[in-house]
Every structure is written in structure tokens, then in C-alpha cells.
């Protein structure tokens, strides 16, 4: 029996005046890959924002228990330092901020939080260069401005690079495969699969099943109208492919 890393109970959340999550329950197990599938507008991205503490989201009821603590009122950076990582669907561009400088700041913030010694520039760059190569990224990505002028694929690879450097405990991948060609998809999923160590948990949020051919899920959850309406094993993917979301009824 696996440990629970996150337990979301009766979560209600709104953006502005509109309620998007309407009593969502979801339990994530340590070391497992959970996929959230659902139609557009079901609340998939809102769920990832609620878990990471985005300002747009107001949680009106319910709990998000992470490693045994309710983190609903935590600052975004505190959630990140405790090991929650979100790979963004559309990573924002930050002009003039050097990619390596940004990532070293993030890595060292986490190391400091964990009571580890900070990495100096040389140690950090050695590690970053190795991963940049592994992910098939161009070396100049190291010193370019963060996400500025990156192609869709470059942005996603850069997200995975950050994930690998930050070594989080719970990884949320929001539409990681959108806008990726087959090579980029392979590189990105190899990176993700390498992170599987039996302890780390994954929440793969996706509209299409394509990514699930590369990252094998342990559980499939169907999110519809702000609630998880069905949870099953990977065999559910084929059923969804065949019948669509419309056929899934609340259990």
C-alpha cells in the first residue's frame, strides 16, 4: 500500500465570481503517475493553479493536504520549496532575465530551504550543461533571456530542464505535449521518465491521450464539470479514445 502524497478533499474554487471546481476529491499516491483527463473547460488548468497557489484562484471550501498539511493558504513559493513543481502549459517570457541566472536562483533558494549548501556558478553550470545536452537543447539556451523568443518545443524542454534541476517531489505537467513535434515529445518524455524513482509523484494533465503512450500512467482520473467523476487504471484510456468523454457517467 503506497503512501498518499496529496489528498484533495471537497475542493471548491472560483475564478472571479465563477465557480470552476465544485467539490473535487483526488488522492495522489507516492511514486505513482496520475493522469487527469477531461474535456475543455472541465477545470483541469484551474486544478493545477489551485494546487500551486495562483492568485487568480480563490479556494472557497475544502482542503489540499500535502505531506500531511493543508496548504490552501500557503504562498506559491512555499509550496514550490516543499517540492511542488508545475510545468506550465504556456511558460511566460521574462525579457532580460538570463535563463541560467534564473534557474540558479531557484535551485539555490530550494537548497537553502533544505539546509544544503548553495551551488556556485561553476558547479551549477556544469550540471545545467549536462542536462541541456541530454534534452537536446541548443547550448545558447543557457544564456538567453528566460523563454523569450523560444519556440513552443524549446519552452517545454526548458520546463523539463527546470524540473530536472529542481528535483521536486510532486510534478504537475499541464498539457506538456501541446505544441510538441515527435522529437521534442520523445526528449521531454524521456526526461520525465528518468525522474521516476518510486518516490516522486506525477500529475499529468492532458486533453489527449498521446502523451500517455510515452509516460505510462498508473491511474486515470476523469475530470468533468469541476469534479473527478471516474478513477480507473490505464485501461480507461482506450475506452475514452473510443467513446469520448460524453459516455463517462458519474460513478
Amino acid at each position: 500500500m503506497s503512501q498518499t502524497v496529496m489528498n484533495i478533499k471537497n475542493l471548491h474554487a472560483k475564478i472571479g465570481t465563477k465557480e470552476i471546481l465544485k467539490g473535487l476529491n483526488l488522492e495522489l499516491e507516492e511514486g505513482k503517475v496520475h493522469a487527469i483527463m477531461g474535456p475543455n473547460g472541465a477545470g483541469k488548468s484551474t486544478l493545477s493553479k489551485a494546487i500551486t497557489g495562483h492568485y487568480d484562484i480563490e479556494v472557497t471550501d475544502g482542503e489540499i493536504d500535502y505531506k500531511g498539511q493543508n496548504i490552501v493558504d500557503w504562498e506559491p513559493e512555499d509550496r514550490a520549496l516543499e517540492g511542488i513543481f508545475l510545468s506550465f502549459q504556456n511558460p511566460v517570457e521574462i525579457p532580460g532575465v538570463n535563463n541560467a541566472y534564473f534557474l540558479r536562483t531557484a535551485v539555490n533558494a530550494k537548497r537553502k530551504y533544505e539546509g544544503k549548501e548553495e551551488l556556485n556558478a561553476a558547479e551549477f553550470l556544469r550540471e545545467m550543461k549536462k542536462l541541456v545536452e541530454e534534452l537536446g537543447m541548443k547550448p545558447e539556451m543557457i544564456s538567453r533571456s528566460l523563454n523569450e523568443g523560444f519556440s513552443g518545443g524549446e519552452k517545454k524542454r526548458n520546463e523539463i530542464l527546470q524540473m530536472m534541476m529542481l528535483e521536486p517531489d510532486l510534478i504537475i505537467l499541464d498539457e506538456i505535449d501541446s505544441g510538441l513535434d515527435i522529437d521534442a515529445l520523445r526528449a521531454v518524455s524521456e526526461g520525465i521518465n528518468k525522474m521516476k524513482d518510486g518516490k516522486r509523484s506525477f500529475l499529468v494533465i492532458t486533453h489527449y491521450s498521446r502523451i500517455l503512450d510515452y509516460i505510462e500512467p498508473d491511474y486515470i482520473h476523469v475530470l468533468k464539470d469541476g469534479k473527478i467523476i471516474k478513477t480507473a487504471g490505464p485501461e480507461l484510456v482506450a475506452e475514452l479514445e473510443e467513446k469520448g468523454y460524453g459516455a463517462i457517467e458519474e460513478a
Partner: peptide, 14 residues
């Protein structure tokens, strides 16, 4: 807000 959130999500304080 998106830029700020992105950086904070990586553990960098506000």
C-alpha cells in the same frame, strides 16, 4: 502576475 507567479512557482520569493 503571470511573470511573478512563474518565478514564485520556482521557489523564488516575491
Amino acid at each position: 502576475d503571470e511573470q511573478l507567479f512563474y518565478l514564485r512557482q520556482r521557489g523564488i520569493n516575491e
